[in-house]
Design a protein around this nucleic acid. Structure first.
Lengths: 136, 136
DNA sequence: GGTGTCTATTGACATTTGGCACATAGTGTG
DNA sequence: CACACTATGTGCCAAATGTCAATAGACACC
């Protein structure tokens, strides 16, 4: 995961193998649900809004696939947009009842994740400080 | 990811397909590095300590494999333990120089992740509060 | 009317990951 | 010896993920 290995101490940020950080995808679904919680939207629109949440560099097909999956799972519904804009017909996604439930559940889960991270960081911080005292 | 789908609104927590929450594995490597930062340890010992960090339900083979991988990448070194206890020879893992670097890098990454989560949660919180005002 | 460009979405295929079941191996116990 | 307990490691398969290319409409420009 996230090859830091080959570079030794050396500088360049080659820590992302390809695409964007691997952790990012984990937040794609909750983010999409949140965005749809604000109101129905096209896939392409969502794609652009993802940048704000640090998910800007995701490959479009990843996002579209996530949307179709979420539809399969019943979290969202979709329909072709009536009004034509420039370009091919667009799909409009709409948050389903189940999606709201899931979103709520996701926030619980994310809080749990946050606590894990905090625990790790705090633990690291304390230990490193301890080291400095010892090596003083 | 994390099947919430089949159950509709109905209660049961079937959100973990098998094993433990999928997100957990993402924290395995940094946690192991952190534990080894306290000093050398056996795989089995580490395995037991993981519980404290919310990684208790990980399958042993996942942990052992992670350790071997980290060794392959040069983050840790290992040697067979001289002193015999009950059971087969045990491997002692030792944090390598590179591992310390990686651990430091990991904390940066985790802080980033934490911010993503915070942004999501705050954004959700605000929007939901807004809803309540509107629907009042 | 061809050619290119921008907007949108999807499909196909390769690679990576995660998890279970099982293999190995030493030691103690009856 | 059969069994149980401690420790570690492997192989395989399904699911998740990443990349690339294909499709497709509208519009502009020469």
């Amino acid at each position: 995961m996230n090859e830091v290995s080959r570079q030794g101490q050396g500088g360049g940020h080659r820590w992302r193998r390809r695409g964007c950080s691997r952790r990012a995808v984990r937040f794609l679904e909750p983010t999409l649900l949140l965005l749809l919680h604000h109101g129905p939207a096209h896939g392409y629109t969502l794609l652009e809004q993802l940048g704000e949440f640090g998910l800007g560099e995701l490959n479009p097909s990843v996002v579209y696939r996530a949307l179709r999956d979420m539809e399969r799972k019943g979290w969202v519904t979709s329909a072709w947009d009536d009004e034509e804009s420039q370009g091919p017909p667009r799909r409009v996604y709409h948050l389903a009842k189940l999606g709201e439930t899931v979103l709520e559940w996701w926030t619980q889960d994310l809080q749990g994740t946050r606590q894990m991270i905090d625990h790790l960081l705090v633990s690291y911080g304390e230990h490193v400080r301890g080291d400095h005292r010892d090596n003083h």
